[in-house]
Design a protein around this nucleic acid. Structure first.
Length: 585
RNA sequence: GCGUUGAUGGUCUAGUGGCUAUGACUGGGGCCUUCCAAGCCCUAAACCCGGGUUCGAAUCCCGGUCGACGCACCA
């Protein structure tokens, strides 16, 4: 059993992850989060919120998971989010049609299906596997289609990313943030992709959770106001060059930005933020790297893109976060399709005053003279230099015809024009997190199956083994287990009181009386509960209980009056275990 | 989507055309003033789904679903 299998088996057995629709045989690409899984997921999302919403100030919004056709027409998902596939008629093997013709034409990318079919026919391309003939090329779009309203209704699609909802709300958001760049909004929610062949458990799902931030910045100023705070952060970069040479570069954010590896400060800041998030979840730093997209794999709209990759036992490095500079691509696209201006007015530091020649054609006179051509004549006049305007009689060529314009048909003068700003289309910096993958990695990195040394039992070759999820206390779904040493009334009663005490402090508490105390400790180790409180006969004498630390298995004695506060501080990381009470030996 | 391969309690597993389908662990109830799995008593729980062959199918055949692996795919 490799780690993946061990983790997934544990996850299934202990209520983290279940195959969806299992009762009916299951469907690939869908997973349920059980009681502990949902709780773990929520804790991960809450840490993300703490960073992006509370600390960065990017408010969370919530948009529909169904989008209308126009949205995906603009985003490019309708046209581009599909692949032209064609299948061999003999052996049924499916290929990307554009890949098949690649050697025969220069630009296979933008070709229509019929053109692809034509090329396949023309060049006599046959199946590389068996030499069979190909059927017709068809589009496989990765979006789930639905319809809105009764009957034919209106076409709708399940969103393939949460980002589009934020772009669409751009004008509203800009107003909300009082029209000042930079600003950003976040969204945590489900996205849908009808994957051809989902595999690898929760790594590739058809319905998955994304946490995305869309941050709108000034295209001319991609510095970050708090760059100083992160510039010393060390980070593993697998840049384009590094991928050529195969060596990972350990550097600082500051160096990477100043030597141009990372495009700019704002992106560098986002990389640092992403790293701090992942480390806070307990991802092992040596198994985390940032890989830069190569020029040819980068989406056409992006100018720089980095993936946070986490190393897993079975799948190697997997992409968990994408951090891209999407430029003004999305806003421009939605602006074109919607015919709305999606820009923001940016005031200059200093208003710019310039002297300009202002020419005013007199349309009242031009109209009757030139009729339909008047507008073009006026434009031509505006394009003239002062020297030419000074002439008494001006000859202009309009639509290949020479027209004569006298000086009474316009006025002009030099004016001082003050420009205090301009409308710009912001660029978008997008960190996009795959929460399900991150959750799996958090579990795998926390998982340990350790051999206990002090096992005196030599009967079995394996020895005494325990499975532990060494979750950071902040992410552990259950925070405290309350365990009466024995299932006896005199111990159960105080245990119940303690549970109430801890729950009132907001702690997620589990109560477990079944089986021996050792078994119950193991059960809680396996689901990652960081602390266990045990009520024993000494409790009845002096109102103290023991608190056991999951990782060291050490115990301290704590007074019941201090218990909830001590546990709370331990979980928050404000105090360390060995100093929280008297060690029990 | 194709190919290879598998599917038996919650988990791992035995079985192989024929009585109430094996065992372990886990789970639940209880005993125990035992603090780190495998103590004692009691208990619950399974042949992936649909067809076919057969007197009889968990077992053989076909199809489907799901998992693993390989190919393809992964804006």
């Amino acid at each position: 059993m490799d780690r993946y299998e061990q983790v997934i088996e544990l996850a299934k057995r202990r209520g983290f992850l279940w195959n969806s629709f299992e009762l009916y045989g299951g469907v690939a690409g869908f997973y349920d989060y059980g009681p502990l899984g949902s709780t773990l997921k929520r804790r991960i999302e809450d840490i993300w919120r703490d960073i992006y919403v509370i600390n960065e100030g990017f408010f969370e919004i919530e948009c529909p998971t169904i989008g209308i056709e126009e949205v995906f027409l603009a985003s490019g998902h309708l046209g581009g989010f599909s692949d032209p596939l064609c299948e061999c008629k003999e052996c049924g093997e499916a290929y990307r049609a554009d890949h098949l013709v690649e050697g025969h034409v220069e630009f296979a990318d933008g070709l229509k299906n019929k053109e692809l079919d034509g090329l396949i026919e023309q060049h006599d391309i046959v199946c590389p596997e068996c030499g069979g003939k190909f059927g017709c090329t068809y589009e496989f779009n990765l979006m789930f289609k639905t319809s809105i309203g009764p009957g034919e209704g209106r076409k709708g699609y399940m969103r393939p990313e949460t980002a589009q909802g934020i772009f669409i709300d751009f004008q509203r958001l800009a107003r909300y943030y009082r029209e000042k760049l930079p600003f950003g909004a976040t969204q945590i929610g489900k996205s849908f992709r009808n994957e051809i062949s989902p595999r690898q458990g929760v790594i590739r799902l058809r319905e998955f959770t994304q946490a995305e931030a869309e941050i709108f910045i000034d295209p001319k100023d991609k510095s970050h106001p708090y760059f100083k705070e992160v510039e010393a952060t060390s980070i593993s970069l697998f840049s384009c060059e590094a991928q050529e040479s195969g060596t990972i570069e350990n550097t600082t954010i500051k160096d990477a930005v100043s030597n141009g590896t990372i495009a700019h400060e704002f992106l560098g800041y986002q990389l640092a933020l992403t790293q701090s998030f992942l480390l806070r979840l307990g991802i092992k730093p040596e198994y985390l790297r940032f890989r830069q997209h190569k020029k040819d794999e980068m989406a056409h709209y992006a100018i720089d893109c980095w993936d946070a990759e986490i190393k897993t036992d079975r799948f190697g490095w997997i992409e968990t976060v994408g951090i891209a500079d999407r430029t003004d691509y999305d806003l421009k696209a939605h602006s074109n399709v919607s015919n709305q201006e999606l820009s923001i007015y940016v005031e200059y530091d200093e208003p710019i005053t310039t002297k300009e020649m202002v020419i005013k054609p007199n349309m009242g006179k031009l109209g009757p003279i030139f009729k339909g051509k008047a507008k073009k004549v006026a434009e031509a006049i505006k394009g003239l230099s002062p020297k030419e305007l000074d002439k008494n009689e001006i000859r202009l060529e309009v639509d290949g015809e020479v027209v004569v314009v006298s000086s009474d048909l316009f006025t002009y003068s030099e004016q001082t024009v003050k420009v205090s700003g301009e409308n710009i289309i912001p660029h978008v910096i997008e960190p996009s997190f795959g929460i399900d993958r991150i959750l799996y990695c958090t579990m795998e990195h926390a998982f340990e199956s350790e051999l206990l040394e002090d096992s005196t039992d030599n009967d079995s070759l394996e020895g005494d083994r325990r499975n532990v999820l060494k979750f950071k206390p902040e992410v552990a779904p259950l925070q405290v287990a309350v365990l009466p040493l024995l299932t006896r009334n005199e111990l159960i009663q105080p245990a119940r009181e303690i549970i109430g005490l801890l729950r009132r402090r907001g702690l997620m508490v589990d109560y477990d009386v079944s089986g021996t105390i050792g078994r119950r400790y193991r059960r809680n180790d396996e689901i990652g509960t960081p602390y266990s409180v045990t009520i024993d006969y000494q409790t009845l004498e002096d109102n103290t209980v023991t608190v056991r630390d999951r990782d060291s298995m050490d115990q301290i004695r704590v007074d019941i009056v201090d218990l909830s506060e001590t546990l709370y501080k331990l979980i928050k990381g404000d105090i360390i275990f060995s100093e929280a009470g008297e060690l029990v030996t």
